[in-house]
Design a protein around this nucleic acid. Structure first.
Lengths: 340, 340
DNA sequence: TTGAAAGCGCTAACAA
DNA sequence: TTGTTAGCGCTTTCAA
């Protein structure tokens, strides 16, 4: 019923018989400064007229917005989806709106995406994107920061990775998790490993690969460079890499894919090659993504509390005092069970 | 380097030696009205200073925003994630920002979510949410519409579902797709069906259930009411429903779960019951979600071009002349293959 | 083609 | 405690 464009605060004020200032204070302004009677009249008028503030006008006047940005690689990837889910919850609790932008898996679009994010002047931004080691996002991050945003970046416990000075890090111990996994796998009796390393320029992939290699080394096993194969960080990437490997006559005892999605691709390739994944070739992943909990054989992996990480990241960006490091937990399942 | 708060148009104008009006016109304003020489100077200054417009100020001044909203049920559900992915692409192409809000799977939160969406005054909104038959979102939708948003709602080809007069429908032929699936399953030799119907108040679930029942009827098979069991529209819901069924001694020949995620839950329950899904109990899903392409046995389902649907929905909301109906395609795989 | 100035809807001094 | 008023950064008449 409202006029085109909606009811303004002025309309509410008039209906309640007060000034816009009073109406503003009653609806939002600093606590306890409006006579209860007026406050009620304003609330009633607002409800009756169906008043809804205009976030843009508020942003202008306040000099600060209600938007929190989350930048992810590919929302279709359950890794990011779970993080997004937690982030949304946190934003919601804080009464803020979560704007998700995605690079669509193309890291070179990162700069552009950060720019388009910046125009909304987010109060906080969480970078869950697959950051590349080349620091291509640096300037975009700086822009955000200069605009007054508090930016939190998900990073790995990898000393090789370049820091981002203006961003607050939230560390995921990818390296340590992968190292533990390697140890556990060796303890299960595996010896002959291959790593599906994903994109070597993506920090997460690098950290997990490096950690795994280090973990093996700690057990006295040296992984030849030829046993580490790069490729896209996706289901199809995992499938292709595994298929290539098998086609070339290699048949490793155990494959470590740097994330679950890639591991599932490897599983499929093994099966399509006529072998039985788990029994003939063991496979382990990373993340313990829920959506893949029912793959067969059940995937050994490193569980990351993705949802919590997403939630924590926005809370941290909002200035709360929360956890700053997350560890993964090795979970051994059917896919690496030694039958012999 | 920029001052706290960033570079304003005024700064650019000064640097370029023109007025803010000219700077504004050069950077965005109606075509061909600024002397090329000035235009260049402005562009150069903007680049040098790292100017980025303030979306809120633009929104205020223009009376229209650059935001497109997508309301989904649960971003963690690959059904929504794929839609979101396509929607993001379309928004991006149009130079708009996609704001995703989620009800977190709680339909009763729908009204609230629509409200918080409305404050951003989106230019267009796509409702991909699991709409309930009780029309609880009606008023929220009307609010959005009154604020000038063009709203597109994903709906089913189900005459029972209430229309939303102010929203433009984008029809997904859930009913027809489910009916085709039923026919195909009967043709494969299946007779003894059970439907894991999801939440009967959710239109999508209803349409698929109704379509399946109708499809069986068309083949002369009547499905007893007791063979339709309601429950949450999720992996766990599917697991629980299937487990309950098996525990009670039922052992259907073929189970139709109203979406893939639920079907995967059913698969797991069957397996945990000591039976072999696919061989002992056939299972079919709906959606053909990519993330579940590698489950074993491969899931028979109805493929929906989710990504394209998401893309089309925002293009439609933006006023483009695009497809208005989407059909599903039956895909028969291992999970319903008759071995005997 | 350009610039001055009036808003867009709201908040926040500042006075009353 | 309330109202008046000056902006927030930008676009857009309206004159020049």
């Amino acid at each position: 019923m409202a006029e085109r464009g909606g009811v303004r605060l002025e309309d509410v004020a008039r209906a309640a018989g007060v000034s816009v200032a009073t109406a503003s204070r009653a609806l939002n302004g600093s606590t306890r400064r409006v006579r209860p009677e007026h406050s009620e009249r304003v609330a009633a008028a607002a409800a009756e007229l169906g008043y809804l503030p205009d976030a843009h006008a508020q942003a202008m006047a306040r000099g600060t917005t209600t938007v929190v940005s989350l930048v992810v690689g590919d929302i279709t990837d359950p890794y990011f989806a779970e993080i997004a889910s937690g982030a949304m919850r946190a934003a919601d609790r804080a009464g803020l709106v979560l704007v998700i932008t995605s690079t669509g898996g193309e890291p070179e679009r990162e700069a552009t995406v950060l720019q388009s994010t910046a125009v909304l002047r987010p109060r906080a931004v969480v970078l869950a994107v697959s950051r590349r080691t080349d620091g291509s996002a640096e300037s975009g991050i700086r822009t955000l920061h200069d605009r007054g945003a508090s930016v939190v970046a998900l990073v790995s416990d990898d000393s090789d990775a370049p820091g981002i000075d203006v961003a607050t890090p939230l560390t995921i111990r990818n390296r340590a998790g992968a190292a533990s996994l390697a140890g556990a796998l060796v303890d299960e009796g595996h010896r002959d490993f291959v790593v599906l390393a994903g994109d070597p320029d993506v920090v997460t992939a690098r950290a997990r690969t490096a950690g795994f290699v280090a973990g093996l080394a700690r057990r006295g096993l040296e992984l030849p460079e030829t046993s580490v194969t790069a490729g896209p960080f996706t289901r199809d990437g995992g499938y292709a890499a595994m298929a290539r490997l098998l086609a070339s006559g290699h048949r490793p005892g155990c494959v470590f894919a740097v994330n679950d999605v890639t591991a599932v691709g490897a599983l499929a390739a093994i099966r399509d090659h006529g072998l039985e994944p788990g029994a003939d070739v063991a496979v382990a992943g990373f993340d313990d993504v829920r959506m893949l909990a029912d793959v067969v054989p059940a995937l050994s992996t490193v569980r990351l509390p993705l949802d919590t990480i997403g939630e924590t990241a926005v809370r941290r960006a909002l200035g709360e005092d929360v956890a700053t490091v997350f560890d993964g937990e090795v979970v051994l399942r059917q896919s690496t069970r030694r039958t012999g």
